[in-house]
């Protein structure tokens, strides 16, 4: 609360700061989150531009199998088929990041739609939608997505959709909870009293105020989607023609004792990326939480 003594004629010089600017300031003060963001940007940069520097087909045999890291200029060595793990990693980053972001997008889209409608309209709509949410929530997630992928084919869009389909209930519940709280607030009543129609109430009045926890959840969702994709690829449920981090681990699994670096490198990549996303999500949570902002 900025209570400035407004003397007659004395112009307030302080520029008003938007809530977004304030949140950014809070985020900037959280060093772990900033570090996470730097790592994340680096990973995204590699995913975006790396394949331009390593344009070779990652599945091509380049050297003798199980060549240890560093030998013959192959930084991470070669795998059991003599493929360059560096190239595999870089091409895999693109897949892992893309699937993570796309799955989070699917999750958030379904989750917000269901949660917003349930929280806003209450009554029968809420009953129906929340029972549906609970139905999806009690499904064993890995098993369900395996069934989807097994039935409809292991293409990347299908994997993305499968991850989205099993993850949206969490977002729906958060969105609904926020809508239930916010719809009773006075500025919503004031907006109604101003003649605002329902669609606008949902998307322009309530949703922006419900956004902070949803944004945090969405950020964390990217991390869990990457893990999920890695899990599915590890089990072989992936497009065999596309490299991804999980797939590298899965393919080299039998040789874990003889050539541990073949699974260590992609494992560390997944770990670091997901950790970075978690740190960013945590930083967002602190920055967007009004209770922590008051100092």
């Amino acid at each position: 609360m900025t209570d400035r003594p407004d003397m007659a004629g004395a112009p307030p010089v302080e520029k008003p700061r938007s809530p977004a600017a304030e949140a950014f300031e809070m985020f900037r003060r959280n060093h772990a989150a900033v570090a996470g963001l730097v790592v994340l940007i680096a990973v995204i940069g590699i995913a975006a531009f790396g394949p331009l520097l390593y344009p070779e087909d990652p599945f091509m045999m380049v050297w003798t199998p199980f060549s240890p890291p560093g030998e013959q200029g192959y930084l991470f060595g070669t795998d059991y088929l003599g493929r360059d793990i560096m190239t595999l990693m870089i091409h895999g980053a693109r897949v892992s990041i893309t699937v993570g972001l796309a799955a989070a997008l699917v999750t958030v889209t379904i989750g917000i739609t269901v949660g917003a409608l349930a929280g806003f309209f209450r009554g029968l709509v809420e009953e129906a939608l929340m029972r549906l949410t609970e139905f999806f929530q009690v499904l064993p997630t890995l098993l369900f997505s395996m069934v989807i992928v097994a039935l409809f084919g292991a293409s990347l869009p299908m994997i993305t959709l499968a991850i989205g389909l099993v993850s949206w209930p969490a977002v729906a519940r958060i969105t609904r909870a926020e809508f239930l709280r916010i719809r009773e607030l006075e500025y919503v009543a004031a907006a109604r009293a101003g003649g605002v129609r329902n669609g606008r109430l949902i998307f322009r009045v309530i949703l922006p105020n419900a956004a902070p926890p949803i944004i945090v959840q969405a950020a964390l969702m990217v991390g869990s989607a990457i893990l999920f994709e890695a899990g599915l690829s590890f089990l072989g449920l992936t497009d065999p023609n596309v490299a991804s981090w999980g797939q590298i681990i899965g393919a080299n699994r039998p040789y874990i004792l003889d050539a541990s670096y073949t699974v260590t490198v992609p494992g560390i990549a997944i770990f670091v990326t997901v950790l970075a996303i978690s740190l960013v999500g945590d930083g967002l949570n602190d920055a967007l939480n009004p209770k922590l902002r008051a100092r």
Partner: peptide
């Protein structure tokens, strides 16, 4: 209509 609580009847965003 003008509401009771000016603290909460404006949209904060």
């Amino acid at each position: 209509m003008i509401f009771q609580e000016p603290m909460t009847s404006l949209n904060p965003v």
